[in-house]
């Protein structure tokens, strides 16, 4: 279920870690949008300073998840309040749906995505 979305432009190319931001530039319990060849990616930071990256589209009606309220390891979509798990991109039951996720990590205060 954690399959990354396939993009025609980048399909087949090896994925590499790319620095997108400094950790401090993403607000705690907040998110930033990263424009990429894979489309818009929402990069989240939770209260424990973990980072997560999801395709910036809610599986429900495509709402920008980056704009939602972050709590625990969940984000509430700003359009209709669907709750999406940050770690797996899965909608919290009883809603059903899944949004693509990307590997994210922190190194030396920098936030990296595997793209």
């Amino acid at each position: 279920m954690s399959a990354q979305p396939i993009n025609i432009k980048t399909a087949g190319q090896p994925r590499t870690w790319i620095k997108v931001s400094a950790l401090e530039d993403i607000p705690k319990l907040g998110a930033r949008v990263v424009k990429s060849a894979h489309g818009d990616i929402a990069v989240f930071r939770n209260a424990e300073d973990e980072v997560f990256a999801l395709r910036d589209q809610c599986p429900h009606k495509g709402g920008p998840l980056s704009q939602g309220i972050v709590f625990g390891k969940t984000v509430a979509c700003p359009l209709h309040n669907w709750q999406i798990g940050l770690a797996d991109g899965q909608a919290v039951a009883p809603d059903v749906g899944c949004t693509g996720r990307f590997e994210a990590k922190i190194e030396d205060g920098g936030v990296y995505l595997q793209l």
Binding site: P27, K28, L29, G30, K61, G62, G63, P64, Q67, G68, I69, V70, P78, L79
Partner: peptide, 17 residues
């Protein structure tokens, strides 16, 4: 971060973002 996006962005989010 504890405000709904509209009050954080000081504008109204629309269905297309």
């Amino acid at each position: 971060q504890s405000r709904f996006i509209n009050e954080r962005a000081h504008a109204n989010i629309q269905k297309d973002g």
